[in-house]
Design a protein around this nucleic acid. Structure first.
Length: 467
DNA sequence: AGGCATTGTCATCCT
DNA sequence: GGAGGATGACAATGC
């Protein structure tokens, strides 16, 4: 049993079912290109504002769809019939209470807005899209779902959405939201392992150590072993991190700056706590043939904990290993003990008749010397990791701020669209009359589209298929 | 005198 | 199994 409500409409509303049925069927004359012109002929209750109404089919679909549109996590979805339509309670002004139990936090700072509910640093669109899908997938709202071949939105609603990039279709939106996140994150990947391979031999500065046999200690004392630093300079040289700091030339044996502290003042701020340049500026204490020079003041001491004690011309007390080496009369310099390759070191030992105490001391000196360099390298890497992480942290903070601003802007645009939607809805409903000339109340009816592409005026709390 | 930074050393694990 | 690198922890030293 059908009855035409008003045949004067460009499209007719027909009532399918009982006369008092809540279902009104949008007529066959509506096509995607027809204008939805609610003219004065609709009913006798003509209102001047009705002449302003002039929408396309797509716009009406957009209106219907917009009712479902919510900012994720702001309005948690609750299953129920026509849930997506229910929020439209009042229409007509931007000040009305539309859908949002949690109004957009327009006065909230971006950072606060982010902190409030945006723990994950992802695009708002990425967060939004899954919920859009959820709305559509709700089984109790079949008629609210646009058909797969629903025409794309057209102006003017299209233009309304442009500022917030909402003009994509659902699929397009999804495509947009699922766009390559690397586009935004490509420059901020945390990579702790990306530090320069400072520990690799390739980064060592060749020739930073120059072994200078002199005085009573000649090359012959090594029993034919050539200067290891000349043989394999890269294997005998401590890793030179000063390259990264740009303050060490890498080829000077004697102190370049008379005051190492002064030299350190030129180190960038973040590197202030980096190990000092002592190792590079005073690298050669091990070059001294201690057994022969221990009794004389040395221009450069060995392993003084504080580089400031090594200023030019200032002698310093011997280190523990130096004193032990002197005491046990180790017949070769500590530099060779530490820096010789293992084969050369073993050969060196084999050429000298050392007692157990001497052998133990030499091996301890070698172990400590190796470990000292390793500790320096380790600390340097640790500092560089800190610098790297600070840089990454700065990037992530900037990105968080950007996303917070983007989210706030999105919420503002959504609020504006809802205001516009409510206005359009009010205009539309103000011109619709039933066959008795009574208006359709927005509180009682909502506009929806069925799977067959027709528009329906549905009475709330009823379903097209749920009869 | 105590805090802090630097450096060396030891212990331990791993390759 | 020894050598050596990596690293946390501790101590010594100077400011």
């Amino acid at each position: 049993m059908c009855s035409t409500i008003n045949n004067a409409l460009p499209f007719s509303f027909r009532c399918e079912g009982p006369v008092n049925s809540n279902r009104l069927h949008g007529g066959v004359s509506m096509s995607s290109t027809h204008r939805f012109s609610a003219s004065a002929r609709v009913c006798s209750n003509y209102s001047p504002q009705q002449s302003e109404m002039d929408w396309t089919w797509q716009e009406l679909m957009a209106i219907t769809e917009l009712q479902e549109f919510e900012v994720p996590n702001e309005n948690p979805f609750e299953a129920g019939p026509y849930h997506s339509m229910e929020p439209v309670v009042h229409y007509g002004s931007c000040g009305m209470n539309l859908v949002e139990p949690n109004p957009p936090t327009c006065q909230t700072s971006p950072a606060a807005a982010f902190e409030a509910g945006y723990a994950d640093a992802i695009s708002p669109y990425q967060r939004l899209n899954p919920n859009v899908e959820m709305h559509y997938g709700h089984g109790g709202c079949q008629v609210t779902r646009l058909p797969p071949n629903a025409p794309p939105l057209q102006p003017p609603l299209m233009s309304l959405m442009d500022p917030m990039n909402m003009t994509n279709t659902n699929q397009g939106q999804r495509k947009h939201c699922n766009g390559n996140p690397d586009d935004l994150e490509s420059d901020s990947g945390l990579s702790l392992g990306s530090s320069p391979p400072l520990a690799s031999p390739e980064n060592e500065v060749h020739g930073a150590i120059t072994y200078l046999p002199r005085d009573g200690y000649t090359e012959g004392d090594t029993d034919g072993i050539e200067d290891p630093c000349q043989m394999r300079p890269n294997m005998n040289t401590p890793m030179d991190y000063s390259q990264a700091f740009g303050s060490y030339s890498g080829h000077s044996y004697l102190p370049v700056a008379p005051n190492p502290q002064h030299a350190q003042q030129h180190v960038p701020h973040l590197h202030q706590h980096a190990p000092s340049m002592k190792q590079q500026l005073f690298p050669a204490t091990l070059h001294e043939p201690l057994v022969y020079h221990a009794s004389t003041p040395r221009a450069v001491s060995f392993d003084s904990p504080n580089p400031k004690t090594k200023e030019a011309g200032v002698s310093s007390p011997l280190t523990r290993d130096e004193r032990r080496a002197v005491a046990l009369q180790i017949p070769f310099p500590l530099e060779k003990i530490v820096n010789l390759p293992v084969d050369d070191f073993n050969e060196l030992l084999s050429r000298h008749a050392l007692n157990d105490a001497q052998l133990t001391l030499v091996r301890d000196i070698r172990r400590r010397g190796k470990n000292k360099v390793a500790a320096q390298n380790c600390r340097k890497r640790k500092l560089e990791n800190i610098v790297h992480l600070e840089h990454e942290l700065g990037q992530l903070r900037a990105r968080r701020e950007h996303l917070a601003r983007e989210r706030l802007e999105f919420q503002q645009n959504l609020t504006m669209l809802k205001c516009r939607l409510s206005e359009l809805y009010a205009k539309l409903f103000s011109q619709l009359r039933d066959e008795e000339g009574h208006p359709f109340s927005l509180e009682d009816y909502s506009l929806q589209q069925s799977n067959d592409g027709n528009l329906y005026l549905l009475q709330r709390n009823n379903s097209l298929d749920g009869e």
